[in-house]
Write a protein that binds this DNA or RNA. Structure first.
Lengths: 251, 251
DNA sequence: CCAAAAGTGTTCATTCTACACCCATGG
DNA sequence: CCATGGGTGTAGAATGAACACTTTTGG
């Protein structure tokens, strides 16, 4: 397997729409494996983390890799993505979205494997990897200190980060990374970490609050050695409402 | 083929990272077909057009469909995408970008086929479908009068339009749809068609010109029954320069 | 009372929007 | 000289950036 990449197929077969479907054998086309790789972002103590596994098998044994697996022939891709993360973390129904497909001919030593990358955001505090539901060999690594990864996973991770940064500016997905109740300073720190920026405190809160997407709880931080901050939660319902009216979230 | 979608695989096989690779047979996983479907946008007389083919074979014989084809086992996906459009239009090196993967278990009657959608933008005026290089059965259809398409192509088209609208706001890809030389009013009409908006003429030109991404040619429109407009062309070199300095195109 | 971070108000500059007006060409 | 769209200027509103200031808590 894994022949060289070519610019034209070596075999000459008529294309899908020029020839009746069932007249010629398509067996030679049905040789692909399909996999899913998950880029799971977490956020803890003002740092972005990625969920990685230490490979216990060849190829790339001992190297860090994104969690991923082959898709079953009778399994939908999104279902596979959810399955992989459920098996790893015990969490059902994670927020997940596609980023890109990777299909280079020689990207996988075991054969021709097309992989779909998904990214996911989870609140580390709520989902402790030391809990019993978690699989062994799963770790949070700091994004800033990322080692080289197995397969083309370094590239996948890099692309996913770009997609995340893009999305987080235009959709309020960042809230997935925070606990349900959070202070505005937490939100600001998160955005600063995600986008490598710094914002003026006063202006940041004016901007966020003016969107009316946060519900001010009647509850404050506790046990902090300074004035405790008011806690907020994200108003999903109002967001959906605004979206349907053509509102567009920005930064 | 095309069994029902399930939430858990019926067969029990150990996952990729828990078991050494070559110890168990992965044959059953390597049964997928991979295809590419292309959403080609064109622009003519203030209307957005889509390149479609009329299917001459089962399934969905006689229906409109996106141009697409199966990927060869030794062919890279982007290469396949370029090949499909080259065979259809005779054009080499089209601007193309991935939008999404579609992999529902039952999306294709011939078996399990994962498809990657690409979108592409081409200048209709420059690439006449009546030219001899073009394949038969290929037509431009008005986006506003789109019929129901074969397979899940209606969904693919809808998603691609959203991606295009997203991209066109943040990257100057729209220029791919225009002739090399164009008037500012053409550009404005294009953006209005793409985004379903209207802009103030004066403000639109101020915004665009202030980016310094257009080169004013020493050439005007001809044969128009009114004052001829100045022609411009897109300054790709300057765009790359600005991008590398952290500039970000908006609207 | 001090340190530390929460939270608010004001000013000034910049950008955006609406709209009025002039210009060049063909008929 | 008129119709048609090309092209420009300006005033007022809205937004955004910078920064100083007040408040509340723990120690």
């Amino acid at each position: 397997m894994a022949e060289k990449t070519i610019d034209r197929p070596l075999t000459e077969v008529k294309s899908q729409f020029a020839v009746p479907y069932y007249e010629i054998s398509y067996d030679k086309f049905f040789q692909f494996g399909v996999s899913v790789d998950c880029v799971v972002f977490g956020y803890h103590e003002n740092r972005l983390k990625i969920l990685l596994i230490k490979r216990g098998a060849e190829p790339y044994k001992g190297m860090w890799a994104l969690p991923g697996d082959l898709v079953y022939p009778n399994e939908n891709i999104e279902v596979a993505a959810q399955r992989i993360l459920r098996d790893l973390t015990g969490i059902e129904d994670l927020y997940m979205e596609q980023t890109k497909v990777y299909g280079k001919v020689d990207r996988h030593p075991a054969g021709r494997v097309i992989t779909t990358a998904y990214y996911s955001l989870i609140d580390i505090a709520k989902h402790d990897p030391h809990a019993s539901a978690w699989a062994e060999g799963v770790y949070w690594l700091d994004l800033a200190e990322m080692p080289k990864l197995a397969f083309d996973h370094s590239e996948i991770l890099k692309d996913a980060l770009v997609v995340l940064q893009q999305r987080v500016r235009h959709q309020p997905v960042g809230f997935e990374l925070l606990p349900e109740k959070f202070a505005l300073a937490d939100l600001q720190a998160l955005y600063e970490a995600l986008l490598n920026e710094t914002y003026d405190k006063a202006n940041f809160r004016k901007r966020i609050l003016s969107m009316n997407l946060l519900i001010s709880l009647k509850e404050n931080q506790k046990d902090v050695p300074h004035r405790p901050a008011r806690l907020y939660k994200f108003d999903k319902q109002r967001y959906d409402e605004l979206i349907s009216k053509g509102f567009s979230f920005e930064l």
